[in-house]
Design a binder for these strands. Structure first.
Lengths: 339, 339
DNA sequence: GGAAATGATGTAAACGTTTTCATTTTCATA
DNA sequence: TATGAAAATGAAAACGTTTACATCATTTCC
């Protein structure tokens, strides 16, 4: 079955005995049309199953009611959920969403962004590795492309963003561990402190620990792909090993727990672990994962809405901070007194 | 900073002292152009940072080198991975991917599909709840819209599809349990046997069990959102309760295991569990999740490539079956002899 | 009852490309 | 050098919309 040509404005106009301009006006509203004419047109539109051709419309308008989204990966549920939020808000507004992912690779990040620009998206929602030093962002600025940072925070106030307060989140993670009596802490970060997210969480974590008068936590950098156990080994064979661990995201926390298990350490028996993101599976597993929860879906919604506002020049760039919250889990238990 | 107007073919043509037709030809290749002219044009293109406007191009071509993807949800990693595969293949081919999700809701499914059609995508990759009875698919057929079923299998050979052999997968799950000495089995499905995937897996599972001469397994329908424990309670309080459980997907398996735990049953101590999909987190948790693995990413790639072939009318509709495989996990252990 | 204002609709240009067809240039051959 | 085929390029139409402007019909007001 070959797809027969879809009806155009001309077909509708001919059938309804009016001009294409009138049809267009009926469809777009806002113009004065005689009610009976409007109704007749509507009927033909329905009868023919007419849908405006987006290409013609966009070309004429000079804008494609589409936003581009650039994320590290969809494999991390926190991003998948964020995307759902974006899509939800976009659908309500009648916009289209183009999604690309960078797999944490700067080259792919740049290429994906170029692709979105070629698509003539009206604006972008981007999560970059490091918003404080990003060629990708510089290129966007230079091109004058409107965008909203997502999950990133920028030191430049003219760069709009939607994120949680990662520094405060790191601090809250520390306090959650400390409140359960943990005194020797450590943080596990992905292969980057080349990530502003990780860095901020780390900074907040360190500050809260220092404020509590505790010794400075070790920082364990564990490559996402390598065996987490290897990286953990160094810190955990030493005497006086940490009893409380903050992992910079939940997926990493799961890997870390698996690594600890491989080392013969029990969670939370020997070590308590808290992650960040609040992914759903964290609550299904045993021990359930304590985490600093990000409102991923809501963040997506807000990012889209803020971008829309920016595009309409209805609002100046804002650095929107949504609030995170601590979700207890079995992976974070009270420190054993003798430790 | 306002985005200044991007250069068009006209700008390039003027600057290079040729006509827009020549520029177009240089860019699209396939036409005979004097090398020196081509080079001059290329230089101007680079200098001006010209990128062809997709709207103009698509409008003229009458086709929007874009494919639409309709999935139940991105929250299930098996779909997120599938999308990555699609995007990867699409990027290589220079196509754009539009993603929508239905959240398992027929109304949203239909609405999302309408949205994609309005977008004038060239073709669709769709996962529907039930491919054997789907108004959505009927509508697509009627509109003459090319599409490829994804994760679905259709009884109609003219409907192209890319999926694993779900029936065989169900059978393999049964055999994996049986091979470990389990004799009393049950299957847990989501809120639907209104899903062809679940039905096929169920059918294969039942057949393999019957073939082994074992009593027919109970079917437990557990709403995804409700407490799985409730649904499980009925089967597991009775004497002679099952020792082997096949869950129709991994996410459901995780929920089920949590439900069993709530009932005071240990996995795999009291009950062995095998899921399906092979999501990554399954290998991070403890006990690790035994599963029938789908090659999600590869399925995505193949779905896109097959759709492309169909669009080019380079191949007739095929029902492509990719092979699944059994991945052992700690959640499936040998049955205790006395059981 | 006529002028002016208002309301409804039509005409045509424009958006940036690709592509058909016509035209010019090039170059080998007679 | 004249001829013509082949190669290179240009002119213009078309894709389906939106919208400024023009036009026509209707009402309103004196």
């Amino acid at each position: 079955m070959k797809s027969q040509p879809r009806p155009t404005l001309h077909d509708v106009a001919a059938q309804a005995g009016v001009s294409i301009a009138t049809v267009s006006r009926v469809l777009n509203g806002g113009a004065r049309i005689r009610p009976e004419t409007a109704q007749r047109v509507q009927e033909v539109v329905r009868a023919l199953g007419f849908r405006p051709n987006r290409m013609g419309r966009d070309l004429r308008r000079g804008q494609s009611r589409a936003v581009g989204v650039l994320l590290p990966t969809l494999a991390n549920p926190v991003f998948a959920d964020s995307v759902s939020g974006i899509q939800e808000a976009a659908r309500e507004a009648g916009w289209t969403v183009l999604i690309t992912s960078s797999d944490y690779d700067p080259a792919q990040e740049r290429a994906a962004m170029e692709g979105l620009l070629a698509e003539r998206v009206a604006g972008l929602i981007v999560t970059v590795a490091d918003a404080e030093r990003s060629p990708t962002l510089d290129a966007l600025d230079e091109a004058g492309q409107p965008y909203v940072l997502f999950h990133n925070e920028s030191p430049f106030p003219e760069r709009a963003s939607v994120a949680v307060d990662n520094e405060a989140a790191g601090a809250d993670a520390a306090r959650a561990l400390i409140a359960q009596g943990h005194r020797r802490l450590a943080m596990v970060a992905g292969r980057f402190l080349a990530s502003d997210r990780s860095r901020r969480r780390h900074r907040g974590f360190m500050q809260a620990v220092a404020q509590a008068g505790l010794p400075a936590p070790a920082l364990i950098e564990a490559d996402f792909n390598a065996e987490a156990a290897a990286a953990l080994g160094g810190v955990f064979t030493a005497s006086g090993r940490p009893t409380g661990l903050f992992c910079s995201n939940d997926l990493l926390a799961l890997r870390t727990i698996a690594g600890l298990r491989a080392l013969g350490l029990a969670v939370p028996g020997d070590v308590s672990v808290i992650g960040m993101d609040g992914i759903n599976v964290g609550q299904l597993i045993s021990p359930s994962l304590a985490s600093i929860v990000q409102p991923a879906r809501e963040m997506g919604r807000r990012a889209f809405l803020h971008l829309l506002a920016r595009l309409a020049e209805a609002s100046p760039p804002a650095q929107i901070r949504l609030s995170h919250r601590y979700r207890p889990g079995q992976s974070l238990a009270a420190a054993t007194p003798q430790e």
